[in-house]
């Protein structure tokens, strides 16, 4: 069980958070102009990296804010947290 440093609230127990999967997948601005394959790429295709992964997290039982987190899935080390819209750090 990790301790997550919510960018709005500070360090909190993992039980207050929920994970929203891979980060930095932007919803296409013009979905109607995409082919089935292109839309499927956005809709279904997710990486499942063993190692450093960029993830979306939500402080669901706290401030309810979404933010991004860089986590090594092999050892759960958290490299960085940053707000939505901020540039991802180089890890």
């Amino acid at each position: 069980m990790f301790v997550i440093n919510c960018p709005y609230c500070g360090e909190r127990d993992q039980s207050e958070f929920s994970c929203g999967g891979e980060a930095h997948i932007v919803r296409p601005k013009q979905p109607t102009e995409l082919s089935d394959d292109e839309w499927a790429e956005y809709l279904f295709m997710r990486k499942n990296i063993k190692g450093v992964q960029f993830e979306r997290w939500n402080h669901a039982h706290g401030c309810r804010k979404w933010f991004n987190m860089v986590r090594d899935t092999s050892n759960d080390k958290i490299h960085a947290v940053y707000k939505m819209g901020e540039k991802p750090p180089v890890i």
Partner: peptide, 13 residues
Amino acid sequence: LSKLEDYLQTEWP
């Protein structure tokens, strides 16, 4: 509510 918040915060800020 969570889903709507998600879209508001992440896709349509």
